[in-house]
Computed example of a mutant assay.
Amino acid sequence: AFRVFAKTDNSVYTNSYSTNGEFICPSSGKPCSCREGKVHKSECLECSAGSATCGEHRPISYNEIDGSLYKEKELIFPPELVLKNNLPLKLHGFGGISWYRPLNLKHLLNLKSLYPAAKLVVGNTEIGIEINFKSAQYPILISVSHVPELNVLSIKENGLEIGSSVRLSRLQEALQEVIAEREIHETSSCRAISDQLIWFAGKQVKNVACVGGNICTASPISDLNPLWMAARADFHIVNTKGSIRTVHAKNFFLGYRKVDLAQDEILHSIFLPWSRHFEFVKEFKQSHRREDDIALVNAGMRVYLKE
């Protein structure tokens, strides 16, 4: 076991175990002379196991396919877990809570038709707080993190299509790629959203929180919702029958934590159009701390100059 997990740099184990001129074997923890040359059984039985000297700890790795010995690679993540197919899940918890994980949009819409009041979950960054600190009760939870139709990130001719389950960190990476590749006048909205995401919570939160969850929470201190409105974004909404309607972002928010979304509907995707010539979008956020803090005031601003 020691040889398997030993580092390739033997100096960590061989150069720092000398006391009063005696070398301490890193395997047995006892004084021995195995550092000076080959190991003799009478001197260090522990070090001679496996026909390797104490000073020659070799990393052992295995082939990802058949488990045969590799010489160059370190230990790998179990391939069985990497290749394992996802399955739809239905779990039951304390207090009658049921948790579902559909794997496609059709299954999700069927669940939504059966449980219209069910809460959709991806990162649990908002619902978890409501349950733990506000004593909210949600008997039916549906995880939409594995629905491919809601994880789309597609560059269109006239804009960017963003699935509602896309993680914020993934959105930030996609925006940076778009900014680097497209004309500068087309990406004013993208730059504003990307810059705002820098100050949006912490990296751990952005790795699990999704775009749609932040939109549908309709928090008055949301960092992104003012920008969706300023950038002329459209929200695509699908009902349990599969019909899709489009709502302008500025018309989607009806009031404090109220949105134009019926119980049999879910937010499918967001369409962010490219900015036009002489159109400029800018973000603003003021908070107590510069990083990882909720906003005191935030805004999304757009100026369009006509010729």
Rank of each mutant, 00 (worst) to 15 (best):
E56S: 04
A52P: 01
L108V: 07
C44W: 02
L81N: 11
K106D: 08
L108P: 04
G55I: 08
L109Q: 02
C54L: 02
L75A: 12
I76V: 11
C44G: 04
S18W: 12
L69E: 15
C34Q: 00
S98K: 07
S48I: 13
K38F: 15
S33D: 13
S48A: 10
E80S: 15
R35G: 05
S33T: 12
E43K: 03
N110A: 15
E36A: 13
K71Y: 10
G96I: 05
L89E: 15
P31L: 03
E46R: 06
H57T: 03
R101W: 07
E46W: 06
K38P: 03
N20Y: 12
P79F: 00
S98N: 09
N110E: 15
E43Y: 00
F23C: 07
E36G: 15
C54M: 04
L109W: 02
S27W: 05
G50N: 00
L91A: 14
F77G: 01
C32T: 14
F77D: 06
P88K: 02
S51T: 02
L111G: 06
L81D: 12
C25L: 09
L45F: 13
L81P: 06
D66F: 08
G37Y: 00
E80H: 13
S42F: 01
K106L: 01
G29Y: 05
T14V: 12
E43G: 03
E64C: 05
E72S: 12
L111P: 03
L91R: 11
P102Y: 04
I24A: 07
S27A: 11
E72V: 09
T14E: 13
N110V: 08
P88M: 02
N86E: 14
S98Y: 05
L45I: 06
K71N: 11
L109R: 01
Y100C: 07
I24K: 08
S68M: 00
G93L: 11
L87K: 14
L103R: 00
F23G: 10
G29E: 04
I60F: 09
T53C: 02
D66Y: 10
K73D: 09
H92I: 11
L109T: 04
C34R: 05
C25P: 05
E36T: 08
G21W: 00
L109P: 05
S33I: 09
I60H: 03
C44L: 06
N110T: 12
C34Y: 04
D66E: 02
G96L: 01
L69Y: 12
N85E: 15
F77N: 04
V82W: 10
K71G: 06
L91D: 10
C32S: 15
G21C: 02
S61W: 03
A49R: 11
K106W: 02
V12R: 14
E74V: 09
Y70G: 11
Y13G: 01
I76A: 10
D66R: 08
P31I: 05
C34N: 09
R101E: 07
G37Q: 00
K90T: 07
I60E: 09
F23A: 10
F23M: 09
K90A: 01
I76S: 12
R35A: 06
V39R: 05
Y62L: 11
C44R: 07
Y62G: 02
L83A: 15
H107R: 08
K73C: 06
G55S: 10
T19G: 01
L109G: 00
Y70Q: 13
F77H: 05
Y62D: 03
K90Y: 04
S16D: 08
V82E: 11
